[in-house]
Write a protein that binds this DNA or RNA. Sequence first.
DNA 1: CCGAATCCTTGTTGATACTG
DNA 2: CAGTATCAACAAGGATTCGG
Lengths: 105, 105
Amino acid sequence: MLTNKNWNCSMSRVLDVVGGKWRMNILWVINKHKKVRFNQLRREVEGITTISLTRGLDVLIENQLIEKYDFETIPLHTEYELTEKGKSLMPILRDLNQWGKEWLQ
Amino acid sequence: MLTNKNWNCSMSRVLDVVGGKWRMNILWVINKHKKVRFNQLRREVEGITTISLTRGLDVLIENQLIEKYDFETIPLHTEYELTEKGKSLMPILRDLNQWGKEWLQ
DNA sequence: CCGAATCCTTGTTGATACTG
DNA sequence: CAGTATCAACAAGGATTCGG
């Protein structure tokens, strides 16, 4: 998404990680539940499709904001959970959300 | 960009406004100068082209985060400045930037 | 149940050239 | 100086189908 490395602030990297259409919302819902399974996530992030959810989770895992736990059972069972890094972003997400409520009706 | 209206938080609208590739950086530079002209902005937002700058400014003006002042002289002279709404976002941008520095090397 | 693979549509960004 | 017009390239998102 973003490639320019010469900026004088870290905003570009931040948006690389959480700037997509769904990613902040995915984080939001995971945070609400602490641990959450794939299909529950899909139900609660309203409007998301399985592929967008998969891609969003992939990016968040790559950047270590969340962790995936794979129980190798049949049927499959996976859980997603915030890492410390992910948790450290939540206060800012709350502020952003609050700002949106106050200023964007 | 974003169209889903049913989310249980305002994140989607926030990203509509400031989620683009350059927009937070444009805000950042405008804030640094208080008032700034087009070409100065283009020089300081490193890597941006005139068209991307124009588009970014348009979105920010539409959403009333910045204001444009047009001095109808020859040669042309314009200035951009943050509105109260734009200023109200700056603390959060600072936090995001700081988070990026701490967690994304 | 939890996804991956494929194919397709749309949105975003950019290069270049040009204008009042 | 401060943009616009046009065209091109690519990334993001989505529908559907398939598999362990």
